[in-house]
Simulated scan of single mutants.
Amino acid sequence: MAKPTLNDFVTARIAAGHLSEDDVINVRRYVYGDMAVSLEEGEALFRLNNANISYHDTWFELFPEAILDILVHQAKPEGYVSEDKATWLIDQILADGHICGKTELDAVLHVLEKARDVPEKLEQFALRAVADSVIAGEGPTRSGTHLKPGVIADAEVELLRRVLYASSGSRGVAISKAEAEVLFDLNDATVEAENAPAWSELFAKAVANFVMAMSGFTPPPRKIALERENWLEQPGGFDGGLGGFFKKMFSGGVGGIRDAYGDKPDPFAARGNELLAEIAANEVVTEEEAAWLVNRIGRDGILHENEKALLRFIREESPNIHPALMPLLEKV
């Protein structure tokens, strides 16, 4: 009699409607019995995960671990996720026709955080999945509860922050235009909602990081530029919190940057006068930057509070503002 395969085992557990701790141990034996995880085994794991049965907690550890091994640890060269593998992962997640769930997003984040390089489309997929879940109210949060449609809660802000953090290793330290666009889309879709204050902070910091990088300035690492500081609750609101942070970082020369970083390592210490020249040049809002901001801010015809905060930041931080932005600045 032929030995049951992983697919046979998965079919039986789906029919039973639950996956016990012993079942998870058996799945692990099937998957790692030959010291490797194949794409076919990965597809069986996705079939089991998409069955929406009851799962023992250990399943939520095994699933992301196995997907990470398939895409990252078994890649050649190790750590580099190919376009084909990224497409495979996205296709598996979308196979059940639902927005990326908690376990699947965990798997994507494991890949983004551990890989040396991943295709940009995978990071954008994760960011868009969180944004779409917030808008639709269909995606489970980290706590296992369900989202309130159109409202960004603290848990969702931290998911967005984790996606942006995870991308720093493979996609560069600066926030990309594609990432900024997703954040703007989410901001537009939740304009009337009672969003968590942390969302305003993350939105403003991320887009400001992108704008500063557009002219070629080497921005601070994402984990510093996007770390949570509760600046809305600080004296002076935007000006005393986020504005003060970036004023030190971008307008105070090398010494100001060191002040902004505090006790953190200064990655720019060796650049000296070259850095000062970059800061002076990049405080200027260029025509390209102005055109993008005008188009993006005015896309839905509403000037949101978070967008006003961005414009105040630009008005105060830039010594030379492009005329295209003046009509918007006059509304702030």
Rank of each mutant, 00 (worst) to 15 (best):
A51P: 15
A51Q: 13
A51V: 15
Y55Q: 09
H56A: 15
D57A: 11
W59T: 15
W59D: 10
W59R: 10
L62M: 14
F63T: 15
F63H: 08
P64L: 10
A66D: 11
I67Y: 02
L68D: 12
D69N: 13
D69S: 12
I70Y: 12
I70P: 08
I70G: 00
Q74Y: 13
A75G: 08
A75D: 03
K76Q: 08
P77A: 07
E78Y: 01
E78N: 03
Y80H: 12
Y80A: 00
Y80P: 00
Y80S: 01
S82E: 05
S82V: 05
S82W: 06
D84F: 08
D84W: 02
K85Y: 11
K85G: 03
K85F: 06
A86L: 06
T87W: 10
L89F: 14
I90K: 11
D91C: 10
D91I: 09
I93A: 06
I93D: 09
A95L: 14
H98Y: 12
H98F: 09
H98T: 10
H98D: 13
H98P: 03
I99M: 02
C100G: 11
G101Q: 14
K102I: 12
T103G: 08
E104S: 10
L105K: 07
L105I: 11
A107M: 09
L109M: 14
H110S: 14
H110C: 07
L112C: 05
L112N: 02
E113Q: 11
E113G: 07
E113L: 11
K114N: 12
K114W: 08
K114C: 11
K114R: 14
A115C: 09
D117A: 01
V118F: 04
V118L: 03
K121N: 14
E123D: 05
F125N: 06
A126L: 04
L127S: 02
A129Y: 03
A129I: 15
V130A: 02
D132E: 15
A136I: 04
A136Q: 14
G137K: 04
G137S: 06
E138Y: 01
E138Q: 10
T141S: 00
S143H: 02
G144A: 10
T145H: 05
T145Q: 06
H146E: 03
L147A: 09
L147T: 11
L147N: 07
P149I: 03
G150H: 01
I152H: 00
A153M: 14
A153Q: 13
A153I: 13
A153S: 13
V157N: 01
E158C: 01
E158P: 04
L159M: 12
L160F: 07
L160K: 01
R161A: 12
R161Y: 08
R162W: 06
R162Y: 01
V163K: 00
Y165K: 03
Y165H: 09
Y165S: 07
A166C: 02
A166N: 01
A166G: 11
S167I: 00
